[in-house]
């Protein structure tokens, strides 16, 4: 379909040629007639163009959301995890992504992501710069339920001892607070996310409105001091064990304790 503007353009071109021919042939009256017609068409063309601009202006708004950074899902998750600096649950990863980036992550796709990563590593080991893998439990070195980590992190950061969930929670709070301090105008979502941490850290903030990222970071740091050493020694020991006992794939994706029934068949 040709738009009215396009039809006008074609007609204008034809008219211009006709005007030129009339002038060169010395037909003054005809040339004047044609010129008048040409001007009328040019005005109509201007109007058609304005109309076209109006039409396209309305759907312009949602464009940035769709067009956003069209990163693959794994990149988006990697971004969120890097920001948090510690293994995190899918729910938190999504919350972080929504607070700082455009576009949305569909929870169901996160579930398949972990399987895809493992399959990819098994078929072509170490071919990607990083893999998204489960955190490992310190005692059994098995995948921890619902916690994602990045393969490039040191082993000790990827294993989860008894104190680690809280330690990682505090580390994430500090990282988030730092990030909020750096960006000029944090969104409401971002502040709300930090408040979810601050509300559960002693002395972090009296209320959501009075919360400052720096105070949250200080309070989290204070509690972190209590747990840090015992958690570190626990995690280091488990990491050492993991490096000694597990093969490449298991070091990333954990060893699974199989039931009697499944090994028996």
């Amino acid at each position: 379909m040709t738009s009215p503007a396009e039809a006008l353009e074609r007609r204008i071109d034809e008219l211009r040629a006709a005007v030129r021919k009339a002038v060169t042939a010395g037909e003054r009256d005809r040339a004047r007639e044609l010129r008048k017609e040409l001007r009328r068409l040019e005005d109509a063309w201007d109007e058609a163009l304005d109309e076209l601009a109006d039409q396209t202006e309305r759907p312009v708004k949602p464009v940035p959301r769709q067009a956003g950074p069209l990163l693959p899902l794994r990149e988006q998750v990697h971004q969120a995890l890097t920001l948090l600096g510690a293994p995190a649950a899918p729910r938190l990863i999504i919350a972080v992504h929504e607070a700082f980036h455009v576009g949305e992550i569909i929870p169901a796709r996160l579930t398949s992501l972990r399987r895809d990563e493992e399959r990819s590593f098994r078929t072509a080991p170490h071919s990607r710069p990083y893999y998204l893998c489960p955190a490992l439990t310190a005692d059994l070195l098995a995948p921890a339920r619902g916690l994602l980590a990045v393969s490039t992190w040191p082993m000790a950061n990827r294993v989860i001892g008894p104190l680690s969930p809280r330690v990682d929670f505090l580390i994430s709070a500090i990282r988030l607070a730092g990030h909020l301090d750096r960006i000029p105008d944090p969104s409401t979502d971002a502040r709300r996310l930090l408040w979810r941490f601050a509300a559960n850290i002693p002395g972090a903030a009296p209320s959501a409105a009075a919360m400052t990222p720096a105070a949250v970071a200080d309070a989290a740091e204070a509690e972190l001091d209590i747990h840090r050493d015992s958690d570190r020694s626990h995690r280091e020991a488990a990491a050492k064990r993991a490096r000694e006992q597990l093969d490449d794939i298991e070091q990333l994706f954990g060893s699974r304790l199989r039931g009697v029934a499944s090994t028996g068949s």
Partner: peptide, 26 residues
């Protein structure tokens, strides 16, 4: 959620848990 964040706060109040009592076993 978030490593029992809300529960830890509540139980610190109700059960008077010490600050270092945050270990978790799944």
């Amino acid at each position: 959620a978030n490593a029992f964040a809300e529960l830890i706060r509540l139980l610190r109040e109700t059960l008077e848990l010490e600050l270092n009592e945050v270990g978790q076993t799944d």
